[in-house]
């Protein structure tokens, strides 16, 4: 009897916890599961602002945000049907298409400039592309598009000593002087800056967008199932996300504070810094001319050319236009 009670208790506790963890969904709100590409850092704050400020709720949406473990992970989760929407680098979607396709389409661009940058420190000797030759560069998982950037500048990528490390080791290795530079995203600048300062070094950032790199990066993607079965919900989500981005640009402190409430282990000042660091990628001369969210065919082809060049795909392996479904963006703009 005691054993039976023990087993019932063991089974009941997790069951209760799972029930308690389930979000209460109001009947009138449409549920939307969003898979982010990474942990809830400041550069994802606009999604959390959308939830915290009630922007999604006012659009009739019950949005659930799931932190991810990289862009390929986010694309896979959407393709596998575990999420309706994904927020990830468009290069991951291009790679998925080049490897055989995925039932996922990019529906809105968020970054119209690539976020990749070289992080170095004052006194490292790195001041431009040519001065990186003969130096050590740490990167995580993939060194793309770095070799292509060097080749375009007429430099030999083999002359840079590349070291593959975990994402968490990138900045500490730079702070320790074990490498002279690392390949990072400009959105990581605030935390890297704080770390370098603690190590008595001054961080210097060379955005690759200022050294010839062009194309779209962070984008919203939707599963084919979402596009086919709930196009109207998708259009509302895109409109609301655009509103959340605009709100975050206007009120970065509020957006960061909203995220800090969800992630108490974060530092609100760093979150705000990360969010602000993403603004030049979102709100720039490209988005101002072409419109926020638009995929301009020529720029899209350029983004694919960089991926093809970095990963060794034939340039005609995919038609980049086939990845895009911009109908919902048009609806949202209207």
């Amino acid at each position: 009897m005691t054993l039976r009670r023990l087993i019932s208790a063991l089974l009941a506790v997790p069951a209760c916890t799972m029930l308690a963890a389930m979000p209460v969904q109001a009947a009138e709100l449409d549920p939307v599961r969003v898979q982010l590409d990474w942990l809830p850092t400041g550069d994802k704050a606009f999604f959390y602002a959308g939830v915290a400020e009630g922007i999604y709720r006012d659009a009739g949406l019950d949005v659930t945000l799931a932190p991810g473990r990289g862009s390929p992970d986010a694309v896979t989760q959407v393709a596998a049907g575990n999420a309706d929407i994904g927020a990830a680098g468009i290069n991951a979607l291009m790679e998925a298409y080049a490897e055989g396709g995925a039932p996922v389409k990019a529906v809105m661009s968020i970054y119209s400039k690539p976020p990749e940058a070289v992080f170095t420190y004052e006194g490292s000797g790195v001041t431009d592309l040519a001065s990186t030759l003969g130096k050590r560069m740490a990167y995580s998982m993939t060194s793309a598009p770095w070799p292509g950037v060097l080749r375009q500048a007429g430099l030999d990528p083999d002359e840079v000593n590349m070291v593959n490390v975990s994402p968490a080791s990138l900045a500490p290795m730079l702070a320790q002087g074990q490498v002279e530079m690392n390949l990072n995203w400009v959105t990581k600048q605030p935390d890297a800056e704080a770390l370098m300062e603690a190590a008595g070094r001054k961080l210097k950032v060379l955005p690759l967008s200022e050294h010839g790199l062009e194309g779209y990066a962070y984008s919203l993607m939707a599963s084919q199932r979402m596009i086919d079965s709930r196009p109207e919900v998708l259009a509302r989500f895109i409109t609301a996300t655009r509103e959340a981005i605009e709100f975050s640009i206007a009120h970065p402190d509020q957006a960061a504070a909203g995220l800090a409430k969800v992630v108490p282990e974060s530092d609100p000042a760093i979150l705000e810094g990360q969010l602000r660091a993403s603004f030049p990628l979102i709100d720039n001369e490209i988005s101002q001319t072409e419109g926020l969210g638009v995929f301009e065919p020529q720029r899209l082809a350029t983004a694919w050319r960089w991926v093809a060049e970095s990963d060794g795909y034939a340039i005609d392996a995919i038609d980049p236009a086939a990845l895009i479904d911009s109908r919902f963006l048009d609806t949202a703009a209207q």
Binding site: L39, P167, A168, D267
Partner: peptide, 21 residues
């Protein structure tokens, strides 16, 4: 939790190390 989670000590380690805390 390193692979997929929104809570847990493993997730907290991943989050803290990625923000250098």
């Amino acid at each position: 939790e390193f692979v997929a989670a929104e809570r847990g000590l493993g997730y907290l380690i991943l989050y803290s190390t990625s923000s250098f805390r």
